[in-house]
């Protein structure tokens, strides 16, 4: 027995599992980005530097993702698009770009060189550089989108596990609340929430949670009910594990596959929702660059063919990001079905 113990002490554990590593990298990307966008003032003098560690983290995540998913070109393409925008989001302060908010030369056409400034994608009617605004614009969408989706996921997964695993009255209650929220058409719910609570980024998070969490809850609930009948859950029950342990440690890791796919899709939906809300003037407020805002401002101006770039550029940008999320989801689903 002692020899056995000795032997096991020598057995070294690696210091971090791949899952933990990915989690850490995601935090290194997301926390500085969130701080930079949401609490820019509070950062004060540190603001220009907080994004520096995120740059290698994005690159590392990208390399890991394409290596891991190399079998599906769909997923690789999707991840490439998403990581491109992530990389832009964390490097944009360091890029040699014109000031996105400063009126320079109005209505410069793409490729124009005016006053020693090059407008590769032209400038808008107030003279701001479209390229610079487009690149800066991804920050807001990504940060608010990822944050809102994460909050919706925490709420949705929690409620879904409770409903699916505990069943009975818990299930009835959770399902009913979900059904009530789901009976609002999404945009109507957004307008209602933002009208009652006021327009701000944090209220967007609440609105997204109200609209997405019930759907996530339904998915998780369904998966949990399916998984619950499997023998390993009964094995955990028969050794007297608590419901909380079973839900979080036994059940949750085994439903993560479909959830990751859904999360990618949902990031896409949230991106649509946020740009649409700013387009409608209901969400994040000007003047900071934002794709939805760019389309909104360009729509009445770009009534001439030659100014259509003002609509085209932000539209293509937002499409490419959503396409990235959707392709990633498709690739992941395809790979999970193949095994």
């Amino acid at each position: 027995m002692n020899a056995l113990i000795q032997q096991t002490r020598e057995h070294r554990r690696s210091w971090m599992t791949p899952a933990q590593l990915i989690g850490a990298l995601l935090l290194i990307v997301w926390v500085p980005l969130m701080a930079y966008v949401m609490f820019h003032q509070a950062l004060g003098i540190a603001a220009p530097y907080v994004l520096l560690p995120s740059v290698p983290a994005v690159l590392a995540l990208y390399v890991m993702a394409i290596y891991h998913w190399r079998e599906s070109w769909v997923a690789v393409l999707g991840v490439t698009l998403v990581c491109f925008w992530l990389l832009v989001a964390v490097t944009v302060p360091y890029l040699p770009l014109l000031d996105p908010n400063k009126p320079l030369v109005p209505l410069a056409l793409p490729g124009a060189l005016k006053h020693g400034m090059s407008f590769m994608l032209g400038s808008d009617m107030r003279g701001r550089d479209v390229l610079s605004r487009t690149l800066w614009g991804c920050q807001r969408v990504l940060v608010w989108g990822i944050t809102a989706t994460s909050v919706a996921y925490v709420v949705g997964v929690g409620l879904g596990l409770i409903g699916g695993y505990l069943s009975g009255w818990w299930d009835e209650a959770v399902t009913f609340v979900g059904n009530v929220l789901l009976s609002f058409p999404v945009m109507v719910l957004f307008i209602l929430v933002l009208n009652v609570l006021g327009q701000s980024g944090f209220n967007i998070i609440i609105a997204v949670t109200f609209s997405s969490a019930p759907i996530i809850m339904r998915i998780v609930r369904g998966l949990a009910m399916q998984e619950k009948s499997r023998d390993y859950i009964q094995a955990a029950q028969t050794r007297g594990e608590s419901a909380l342990w079973i839900m979080v440690m036994e059940l949750l890791p085994n439903i993560r596959g479909p959830l990751i796919v859904d999360a990618c899709l949902r990031l896409g939906y949230t991106t649509v929702a946020i740009t649409t809300l700013t387009f409608l003037g209901l969400g994040l407020q000007p003047p900071d660059p934002d794709w939805g805002l760019m389309i909104k401002e360009a729509a009445p101006v770009a009534l001439l063919w030659k100014y259509s770039y003002m609509l085209l550029v932000p539209s293509l940008a937002v499409t490419s990001l959503i396409l990235g999320f959707n392709l990633t989801a498709d690739g992941l689903r395809e790979m999970s079905q193949r095994d």
Binding site: G268, T271, V272, T275, T276, F279, G292, I295, K296, A298, A299, A302, W305, S308, L311, L312, P314, S315, L316, V318, T319, I322, L323, F325, N326, L327
Partner: peptide, 14 residues
């Protein structure tokens, strides 16, 4: 399905 409707609307208009 990846093009948000504000973008579709803008592109179709163009």
């Amino acid at each position: 399905t990846s093009i948000p409707q504000i973008a579709t609307a803008a592109l179709l208009t163009v």
